[in-house]
């Protein structure tokens, strides 16, 4: 455990807290992509299947359960709970996620660390996480202007990815035998997806002003 990894996990948790606060306190899921949240739920449920047989630390196991619980709760609220379910707009949030899930499943079957079922599922979850934010980014793009809490949510997720990237660099130079090509590749792609958002986030938040983020 290093500081980058820890802060990365904390900003990941922060992103869940921001999103849960937004949809429970604000009673609205407007601007939030249910598609992205469903993808995250699939990602966590498939990657953390090993909760049943792998134990690395209490910290890890606890956070795995937290991530599955939070993403499931978010999907449940937006899909089934009133009044939030009536604020979700399926016409706006219509990214065809089958085109993300399909190729990631094929990639998971073909490119993995070891030819076992769990390694295939695990690789699938890594690939899917890399692109899971796309429906959310497309939704923001369509809306043009992004509500503050939503922009903080995406920023917290982006920070989590950036910090994990630094964690990998740190581990590569401080540990022997630390090689994770699949994770590094997918993680770099994933972090890259946030670069454009961060540019606009910085533009609208600089000078301490709390203006909504405007996307072209």
């Amino acid at each position: 455990m290093n500081i980058f990894r820890f802060l990365g996990d904390m900003s990941h948790i922060l992103s869940f807290v921001i999103l849960l606060l937004k949809i429970t306190q604000g009673k609205s899921a407007a601007g939030i992509s249910l598609r992205t949240q469903e993808l995250y739920m699939i990602v966590f449920c498939s990657r953390y299947l090993d909760l049943f047989w792998n134990f690395s630390s209490l910290y890890n196991s606890f956070l795995k359960v937290v991530f599955i619980a939070c993403s499931s709760a978010i999907v449940y609220i937006i899909r089934f709970k009133s009044p939030q379910k009536d604020t979700w707009n399926p016409e706006l949030d219509n990214f065809p996620i089958q085109y993300l899930i399909g190729p990631c499943a094929v990639a998971g079957l073909l490119i993995n660390q070891d030819w076992t079922p769990f390694e295939m599922i695990w690789a699938f979850s890594i690939y899917l996480e890399a692109v899971a934010i796309l429906p959310q980014l497309f939704l923001l793009q369509k809306q043009g202007e992004v509500e503050n809490l939503t922009s903080h949510y995406v920023a917290a997720l982006g920070a989590y990815r950036g910090l994990y990237l630094m964690n990998w660099v740190y581990r590569y130079f401080t540990e022997d035998d630390y090689l994770q090509r699949i994770v590094w590749f997918a993680g770099t792609v994933q972090t890259g997806l946030y670069i454009d958002f961060f540019y606009h986030y910085y533009q609208s938040k600089r000078g301490g002003l709390s203006r909504p983020v405007k996307l072209p």
């Binding site: 090993d50 660390q113 070891d114 994990y164 964690n167 090689l179 994770q180 994770v183």
Partner: peptide, 10 residues
């Protein structure tokens, strides 16, 4: 033999 990375990240 391929070395499997330990799954100690989230």
């Amino acid at each position: 033999e391929m070395l499997l990375a330990e799954k100690d990240e989230l």
